[in-house]
């Protein structure tokens, strides 16, 4: 639990970060809250000779609320929980954040780190796919935008280039009902299965639906087909079952200490149906 030696940098602006990333290539990594990266370094599963701290970069902070919401990459999970206006414009963020880790970790862990990390256990990537968020990246050639739904390729493999920095996430303020439902073994645990659901209503029918699942594949799983199962329906038990069955086809969980594949599929079905029910009630 002792990391290998590394050099530490704390630049004041993004250009400084990007030039360090360019200079050291593979040997450099940015550190945000450190609560995913430092454990990996201590276990010597990640060797990072050059560690670039993002704490002093103003551009990466701040929450902008409105029809289009923008959350700076260095915003912590605790910041999200404490932000009253965000809690009313996009309450699913608070509901999900409260289910991440424990208070100590949430004071450190950031949105940028959580979505950039690429660990299938992280809750925010699925959440961002559910919100149809856009990630704003900055690299040596300037900025670009990538959809959360296109960002994840495999565990720890994302669309982000090594010399790009995650600047912010943006998304339209969600409409309708929402739910983030997560089953875990204990406080501080990653999900056995988690579901993010947003549903809007038109009269008594479902107008729009968005479903994404967490820790049930090597990437977050946006379940477009499952969402479609709900649209236009009155979200009856039968409709929920259809959506759940469609979701089961889309996930690909692996056995681990949380249980065998069959259990994970069962847990996924349970959390999704509960999430849909709750979101529908709130819609």
């Amino acid at each position: 639990m002792i990391p290998a030696a590394f050099d530490y940098y704390r630049p004041n602006d993004l250009d400084g970060v990007i030039s360090l990333l360019q200079e050291h290539g593979d040997d450099a990594r940015v550190i945000a809250g450190g609560h995913s990266l430092i454990p990996l370094m201590k276990l010597r599963m990640a060797e990072v000779p050059h560690l670039i701290d993002l704490q002093s970069i103003e551009e990466l902070t701040g929450i902008e609320n409105g029809a289009r919401i923008r959350i700076g990459a260095m915003t912590t999970q605790a910041d999200i929980i404490d932000n009253a206006s965000l809690a009313s414009s996009a309450p699913i963020l608070k509901e999900a954040s409260l289910q991440i880790a424990d208070p100590q970790v949430r004071y450190m862990g950031t949105v940028g780190g959580n979505v950039a990390n690429g660990d299938p256990g992280n809750d925010m990537p699925g959440l961002m796919q559910c919100l149809d968020a856009t990630f704003i990246l900055r690299g040596p050639n300037g900025g670009r935008e990538v959809k959360a739904r296109d960002f994840y390729h495999a565990a720890y493999m994302t669309e982000r280039e090594d010399d790009e920095v995650m600047v912010a996430v943006t998304f339209d303020a969600p409409k309708g009902g929402y739910a983030y439902e997560k089953q875990k073994r204990k406080i501080g645990d990653y999900a056995t299965a988690a579901a993010a659901v947003i549903i809007s209503k038109d009269g008594s029918k479902c107008k729009e639906a968005s479903i994404a699942m967490t820790n049930l594949s090597d990437t977050p799983v946006f379940c477009g087909a499952a969402s479609d199962c709900l649209i236009g329906t009155s979200v009856s038990a039968e409709d929920i079952k259809n959506a759940v069955n469609s979701m089961i086809d889309a996930i690909d969980p692996a056995e681990d200490n949380r249980g065998p594949v069959e259990f994970k599929k069962h847990a996924a079905a349970v959390v999704l149906s509960r999430a849909i029910e709750r979101a529908w009630q709130r819609a």
Partner: peptide
């Protein structure tokens, strides 16, 4: 008696 084992018992 963790979650998956209880689930398995029920199953």
């Amino acid at each position: 008696h963790d979650h998956w084992r209880i689930w398995k018992t029920a199953n």
